[in-house]
């Protein structure tokens, strides 16, 4: 359910994308979340994250986009044991602009993906972690 296009329907309850969160490989995450939808690089996604994270336990991330029809935002950390970190389901009443803090076990590509009904848009940044954060 959670990967079905929401449109303007204000769904109250979402089935959790458990398999995507439990996946250990990037391609499994993509398959669970997006099926066969194409993933293309986009410069219309703003991913704010430090180039060097001194403390991998607390890495601030902001994702914002101007892509029309954005339904959901995903934060993916390639080298974490479970790459999918967070997803945000948008509505017409929420701006496509979210911030959170994530844990990174080691240096990794961090990706922000934006889902539209037909296409997944992506941007990524390499983040160097000096002290890993998956020990807590």
């Amino acid at each position: 359910m959670s990967v079905i296009a929401l449109g303007a329907i204000p769904l109250q309850v979402f089935a959790r994308a458990t398999k995507a969160f439990e996946a250990t490989k990037l391609d499994s995450v993509y398959r669970e979340l997006f099926g066969d939808l194409p993933i293309v690089e986009s410069s219309d996604i703003k991913l704010d994250i430090p180039d060097i994270a001194e403390n991998g336990a607390v890495v601030p991330v902001t994702v914002a986009t101007t892509i029309a029809g954005a339904e959901a935002i995903y934060v993916v950390i390639d080298m974490n044991p479970n790459p999918l970190s967070a997803s945000f389901k948008l509505t017409q009443f929420s701006a496509a602009d979210v911030s959170l803090r994530v844990k990174m076990g080691k240096s990794s590509m961090v990706r922000a993906l934006v889902k539209t009904p037909s296409t997944i848009y992506m941007t990524g940044r390499e983040v160097k972690v000096t002290i890993g954060g998956c020990g807590g």
Partner: peptide
């Protein structure tokens, strides 16, 4: 409801 989020274990 205007926004929902699902999180994994790697949120701080």
């Amino acid at each position: 409801v205007v926004l929902t989020a699902e999180w994994g274990t790697s949120v701080s």
